[in-house]
């Protein structure tokens, strides 16, 4: 059985992500211990709240070098929500913050103004449909069908430099939300698979088998 570490750096509801992994047959350890992260077969990096606060907690707990080491080992890593945002180079929430830099790109605010008039409410909260940016074969979304819905809650959105890093997008009143990214063993979902019912559990399952 796959040994999955969910990185605990003291932020948010981590119980649900652990339960979702267990429900799909993974063995989970919720920990911020560097040795356990080094030994993991798979690592999940969760995150809610502000980008700056999340990265500064990761750094304060001296987890950045461990995550770098883990990334270099080529084993699968899944960032969820702000955990995905932290994979990028830079985040712009409450000032500019340096991310982990595993994927080139920025994390920017979703604009409240809709082109051509009107407003979109921020945060983007709710279920939204996944649209493919490239083939989902052999990726995190291999068991997902286009237009299946998943649960989002966020005010900021990733802008990857490399088009090929984007796996899926979702349309939020005309704004293109980068919903999932995937480059080799580095994966991320802006939405919460652990809160996306049966569709989300299939995505967790895919992560455990990749």
């Amino acid at each position: 059985m796959s040994q999955v570490v969910v990185v605990d750096y003291g932020i948010g509801n981590l119980l649900s992500v652990c339960r979702a992994i267990e429900a799909q047959g993974g063995a989970v350890t919720l920990t911020g211990n560097p040795d356990e992260i080094r030994r993991a077969d798979r690592v999940v990096l969760p995150g809610v709240g502000a980008f700056g606060k999340c990265v500064s907690e990761v750094r304060r707990l001296r987890l950045e070098s461990v995550l770098n080491e883990y990334r270099d080992s080529g084993r699968p890593l899944l960032g969820i929500c702000v955990g995905m945002q932290m994979l990028f180079t830079t985040g712009e929430e409450f000032g500019e913050h340096e991310g982990l830099g595993f994927l080139p790109g920025r994390v920017v605010a979703i604009p409240p103004d809709v082109a051509g008039g009107g407003k979109r409410k921020i945060p983007h909260i709710g279920w939204n449909a996944l649209m493919p940016s490239r083939t989902w074969e052999g990726t995190l979304l291999q068991g997902t069908k286009p237009e299946e819905c998943v649960y989002f809650v966020h005010s900021f959105s990733a802008r990857p430099e490399m088009e090929s890093d984007t796996l899926a997008t979702a349309d939020y009143v005309g704004f293109n939300v980068v919903a999932a990214v995937h480059r080799g063993p580095i994966m991320g979902t802006q939405f919460h698979p652990e809160k996306s019912g049966e569709v989300g559990l299939r995505i967790v399952k895919a992560f455990l088998t990749l």
């Binding site: 509801n13 119980l15 649900s16 339960r19 649960y151 809650v153 919460h192 652990e194 809160k195 019912g197």
Partner: peptide, 11 residues
């Protein structure tokens, strides 16, 4: 909440 989060996978 703890009991419900065990097997409910919506927010």
């Amino acid at each position: 909440v703890r009991r419900t989060a065990e097997n409910v996978f919506v927010p």
